[in-house]
């Protein structure tokens, strides 16, 4: 059974370097560094307070139904915005689409610290709730915003992208740690190859700039030492389309999906060896580590440059999770022959 060919037709990117692909590329070209002590929360108690934060984003501009914003945490907002950017970049037709899927990778959640605290502040005995999870549950029952769970359920990231775009294709939120975004991209492309979707918004969206992420990273020793990891945030989304349909609608092709790996091992090593690496390190030096969105962001940057040859995006995480994707230059010959 021959599988269908998958091409990239649109890119969306949000990083600490800029709220958009153009802004990020410019900052990279100028060597501007966006790393600074965190402002989203007071990170001074941690071994390293440095972070890469997305600034100046106006999400309303990217939300078809802005009412949903109250239900979207940071990484979900980033995902929706980056997806909207990718669709616009691709010139993808608007309107409900049964064949448009969404596959986004993310890690962790900030669990809404402020809302939890507010719920406790309203309760009769906040100190008791600190020691006793039973009491905490009751305080939550009495004073927590009922929408809390919906804001923090990780699958909402992909759900909101779909709702804003009325996309009814397959839909998943991948959570394989730091490899999540790239794994989501691999799977999203696979859906098209298999004929389960005709187009997919695939990528990573993450925000590690919150106490829970910092604490967990610090516990692993990653915030200490001469070059600590810099937790960052952002989103990178590509629009994949089935190749013939993309050509038929006159889409501009940025690349074609090649081989992939969804785990560490020889296959991943082979993919990485034979291709130009996506600029993961450069991005990390200037923007910090975007975790699940990092490898997707590096991939988007490569695609934006224009591919002279195959490019490999590789993601690896501290628990051993890994994925890799090879992207080939688009085959222009077929288009000019058509």
């Amino acid at each position: 059974m021959r599988e269908r060919r998958v091409v990239v037709t649109g890119l969306g990117l949000l990083t600490p370097l800029g709220t958009g692909l153009g802004a990020t590329r410019l900052a990279l070209a100028e060597g501007r560094c966006a790393i600074a002590p965190a402002t989203l929360f007071d990170a001074s108690p941690f071994a390293s307070p440095l972070a890469g934060e997305v600034r100046g984003l106006d999400p309303r501009a990217y939300f078809r139904v802005p009412k949903a914003l109250k239900l979207c945490d940071r990484r979900t907002r980033f995902a929706v915005c980056a997806a909207a950017m990718a669709l616009e970049d691709a010139g993808f037709p608007a309107g409900p689409c049964d064949g448009l899927g969404v596959s986004i990778g993310t890690s962790g959640s900030d669990l809404g610290a402020e809302e939890l605290s507010a719920a406790l502040a309203r309760s009769e005995d906040p100190a008791l709730s600190a020691r006793d999870t039973d009491a905490f549950g009751e305080a939550a029952l009495a004073g927590l915003n009922p929408l809390w769970l919906l804001v923090h359920l990780p699958n909402m990231t992909s759900a909101h992208v779909a709702i804003q775009r009325e996309a009814r294709g397959p839909n998943t939120t991948v959570m394989t740690g730091w490899a999540a975004g790239l794994s989501a991209i691999v799977e999203g492309a696979a859906w098209i190859a298999e004929g389960r979707a005709d187009a997919v918004l695939a990528g990573g969206a993450d925000s590690a700039v919150h106490p829970f992420a910092f604490a967990a990273l610090e516990q692993k020793g990653l915030l200490s030492g001469p070059s600590p990891l810099v937790p960052a945030e952002g989103a990178a989304v590509v629009l994949f389309e089935e190749r013939e349909a993309a050509l038929a609608r006159g889409a501009r092709l940025l690349g074609e999906v090649g081989a992939h790996a969804l785990s560490a091992g020889t296959r991943l090593a082979a993919l990485a060896a034979d291709a130009t690496p996506a600029p993961s390190r450069q991005l990390e030096r200037l923007a910090g580590n975007l975790l699940a969105a990092h490898a997707p962001a590096a991939l988007v940057l490569s695609l934006a440059e224009g591919l002279a040859g195959p490019v490999a995006a590789v993601a690896m995480g501290p628990a051993g999770e890994a994925s890799a994707l090879l992207v080939l230059p688009p085959d222009e010959a077929a288009r000019s022959a058509a």
């Binding site: 009412k67 239900l71 009922p146 929408l147």
Partner: peptide, 13 residues
């Protein structure tokens, strides 16, 4: 005004 079920919960809160 486009309210869905969870909006009722939100408004009450």
């Amino acid at each position: 005004l486009g309210a869905e079920s969870i909006d009722f919960l939100d408004i009450v809160f």
